[in-house]
């Protein structure tokens, strides 16, 4: 299968998982972050579930010379911890808390609540453009 087909299947499965798990609902995600309110632990179960196939996948990855449908592995480094990483994570976490949305659910919600999701997605792209301009 061609690479775009593999990516589409992965995206479909990812979007299915987001919607099925309740993570497409920003209120539920925000409730996970709301330790002093009506806390909802669902997100922790989602994270736990997602770790299992991926932990196995990393073990398999180490035994492969190249991926099944592409020429080589193209993976980021794992050790560099700097101010950009930390400050980016702080800003992302703040936005996540304020809206209850991270990029995956925001995009998935384009199908579920398009009027609201389009606002978040456009703002998100605006933030990405701002970063690109600022770091040019």
């Amino acid at each position: 299968m061609n690479r775009a087909g593999v990516a589409l299947i992965a995206g479909l499965l990812f979007g299915t998982g987001l919607a099925f798990s309740g993570m497409a609902d920003p209120q539920r995600v925000q409730s996970f972050l709301d330790l002093f309110g009506n806390w909802d632990p669902t997100l922790a179960f989602v994270m736990g579930g997602a770790m299992i196939p991926m932990a196995i996948a990393w073990v398999i990855q180490r035994r492969l010379d190249k991926p099944f449908a592409d020429a080589h592995f193209d993976l980021p480094g794992t050790s560099r911890i700097d101010g950009k990483l930390a400050s980016g994570a702080v800003l992302f976490g703040m936005g996540w808390g304020i809206s209850g949305l991270c990029p995956g659910p925001a995009l998935a919600d384009l199908a579920l609540a398009p009027g609201k999701a389009v606002i978040v997605v456009l703002a998100m792209l605006g933030g990405m453009i701002a970063h690109r301009v600022a770091t040019r």
């Binding site: 994570a89 992302f92 936005g95 991270c102 605006g126 970063h131």
Partner: peptide, 8 residues
């Protein structure tokens, strides 16, 4: 939230 998520 969207702006912060995108930039961050």
């Amino acid at each position: 939230g969207g702006l912060l998520v995108g930039f961050g």
